[in-house]
Design a protein around this nucleic acid. Structure first.
Lengths: 168, 168
DNA sequence: GCTCAGATTTTGCGCATTCAACGACTTTAT
DNA sequence: ATAAAGTCGTTGAATGCGCAAAATCTGAGC
């Protein structure tokens, strides 16, 4: 039996994830932009800023939305230009600056969130809350696992016959 | 109680999806590129080509990996240059060309799939097959729903107090 | 046969992101 | 105090993608 790895179930599932995510992100992103004038990326950024108990540094924010610090710099630049966020210099460390919402930003975020919720409810209308809960839980653990892994752990593993856990 | 839409559960879940997906795609993509020299996008494209019972047109392929036809043209260009795929002109319609794997492409895909499966198994090690099944099912229905919706349906949603005008 | 509407892919341009190098700053060691 | 090493954010070059117009081709009406 020479079942190819190409047909492995995990590959299919992940392929579906790629496809569904891309389609969803595009659809919801376009809707958001059309209905309230901001890109989806801005929304996700503002969301993290608003929800964070402490002020967020550039790097922290970059990490949360999976951007490099360089990309984050420019993304924030645009949002600052639009008047939605501002850079607050850290009083104790002059290298870092925090991202904070302006009043206009807070208002825009609330508006965008309402629209986003409405669109999300439409998208997930066919799904039970149980399913969504499972999804949420799965994603949460995936994220947690990802954070624990310092991203170096994947690299030094060129051992072809090594399927086991890195003998920590 | 004036619970803000910002705190809605769906927003959180979708935010997690964005974050987890981006992190995952980056991690697995980097691993794939490092371990077998091809970008993740190439892998997904080759996967669809290999699995499709009929030959795939550019547009069909573009649709499956959530790219515009313009993006698809260039993606395929690079893959052709690398010798992994080739364009097969359609005998009955000279506008269309099919994407087909070369022998080298088939071999590379198999190699990449083995690596990808190993990495995926590591990533999903903490998750039960039940959970993954649920995820797979959810994604499948999400995709199906998305395909039925011609992407025009999202627009004419009657915006109550249309706050819009991207204005500039 | 000719023309015109529609379909399929390619191309020009602009934008967002990554990578790598850099400057600014802090911390630690001497 | 000074130097060295590490951290944080920004910037220049290169890459990949979307959008829209163009090029090529098919099929229908006349």
């Amino acid at each position: 039996m020479v079942e190819s790895a190409v047909d492995h179930a995990l590959v299919t599932t992940f392929g579906r994830l790629v496809e569904a995510y891309s389609a969803l992100e595009r659809q919801l992103g376009e809707a958001l932009e059309r209905e309230c004038g901001i890109p989806h990326t801005w929304f996700e950024a503002m969301l993290r800023i608003a929800r964070s108990p402490d002020k967020l540094t550039m790097s922290a924010l970059a990490g949360q939305i999976a951007l490099t610090t360089g990309g984050m710099t420019r993304l924030l630049d645009r949002m600052v230009t639009a008047g939605l966020v501002e850079r607050v210099p850290c009083p104790t460390d002059r290298r870092v600056s925090f991202a904070a919402l302006t009043p206009a930003g807070r208002q825009k975020l609330e508006e965008a969130a309402r629209i986003h919720v409405r669109n999300l409810e439409r998208v997930f209308a066919d799904h039970t809350s149980d399913e969504i809960k499972t999804l949420d839980d799965l994603l949460d653990r995936l994220l947690r696992r990802d954070r624990e892994r310092p991203a170096h752990e994947a690299a030094p593993c060129p051992t072809p016959g090594d399927a086991a856990a890195p003998a920590g």
